[in-house]
Design a protein around this nucleic acid. Sequence first.
DNA 1: ATTAATTTTTAGATTAATCTAAAAATATTT
DNA 2: AAATATTTTTAGATTAATCTAAAAATTAAT
Lengths: 220, 220
Amino acid sequence: MEYTRTEENYLKAIYSLFSEENKEVSTNTIAERLETKASSVTDMVKKLANKKLVKYEKYKGVTLTKKGNNIAVTIIRNHRIWEVFLVEKLGYKWDEVHEIAEQLEHIKSDELIDRMDEFLDHPKFDPHGDPIPDKKGKFAERKKALMLSELALEEKGIIVGVKNTSNDFLQYLEEKSLVLGKEIKVLKEFDFDKSRNLAIGKKEVTVSKEVCNNLIIEIL
Amino acid sequence: MEYTRTEENYLKAIYSLFSEENKEVSTNTIAERLETKASSVTDMVKKLANKKLVKYEKYKGVTLTKKGNNIAVTIIRNHRIWEVFLVEKLGYKWDEVHEIAEQLEHIKSDELIDRMDEFLDHPKFDPHGDPIPDKKGKFAERKKALMLSELALEEKGIIVGVKNTSNDFLQYLEEKSLVLGKEIKVLKEFDFDKSRNLAIGKKEVTVSKEVCNNLIIEIL
DNA sequence: ATTAATTTTTAGATTAATCTAAAAATATTT
DNA sequence: AAATATTTTTAGATTAATCTAAAAATTAAT
């Protein structure tokens, strides 16, 4: 069965709100996320409930059914695969691709996405570091976290935390745009002081041994 | 200004019907092409006329304005560029790509199409052999078609058709990736059997006299 | 040139997605 | 627990794109 773009966007919104809050999603929250009115949400949610895509009880919020969940995950897969394409093949920056991927994710063709996946060599994470669910809806597991100092040369990873949580340090990171979720790659290490050069997007940044010992990275 | 998918499809239909008939396009003809009813066409055509995309006189048919024409050509450009991508990069066959391209052509981003064009190395023809208009709407000129056997050494051309349409032949061509829209160059001819060596991309392929007599080529 | 056939337009309805404003239910505060 | 505030739903309208059926205009045929 095929669904409208709007229906798909509602399912996607409900999916991500549910995974943020871990409880039934309220009409108002959906309205906010989708920049629409609560009354419109009520209408749509009834429609989705009729199609067995969500479970809905008046005044009690919404959750996805198995079917609804599957569709949401498929759209997320599409979105993230397209983002990989836009960045890897067309040279977009990772923060420029969201809007276009919002359009591309609704293209209706399972075969197309399979072929894109193949063409891109089955990427496991998108350019923002978010995992790409496979065809069956299974999300790649995150590898265990390491300190930046433990990463090998040429290894890529995502910043997922800090050991030292002082304000000074956080401000320093902010300054160098070493923010949470950022993808980095280790380019080289200088023997004499153990400082390292990182690739962040197209920029190259040098960070000291202290920084390397305090940044928690998940390998990609 | 942005237009709906439906509006774009009407403009595209009017464009191609006009170029087939060279006179104002009738409501009924559009209805047939778009598999809808004449009354719906009348409504839409009025809307397009209000937006100055078509010239419309009751009972007298429709033509595109300059503005409408520009939009139609842009959509055609998008469509054909996506078709090239699907065939060249994702390995679709040329007769499998139309429907997906019908969806992709409506993605709203000039930048995206420019980058795709670049990525695909500015293709001049799509996999069906139809010319791809450039950014300014200019179509590549068609040179007259010849048989491959008539091409001189070192001449380049594009495969635009076959004389022999048997399945055997088409399958053979598929195998050698002598597909529609492909650019070839004549490298040499062997006197004793009139077979020829062609450059296809980076590969070199030998084809028999029979093949040369059945492949229609447009000189570049 | 009337009549008949066809094409095109109008009028009125329908469906999807949205909105505003008011009513109903739930949650919060005193 | 009563009053107040907030959230959610309902009711009724609106817009885009479509449809059917009937009316109007054009074209073809005798």
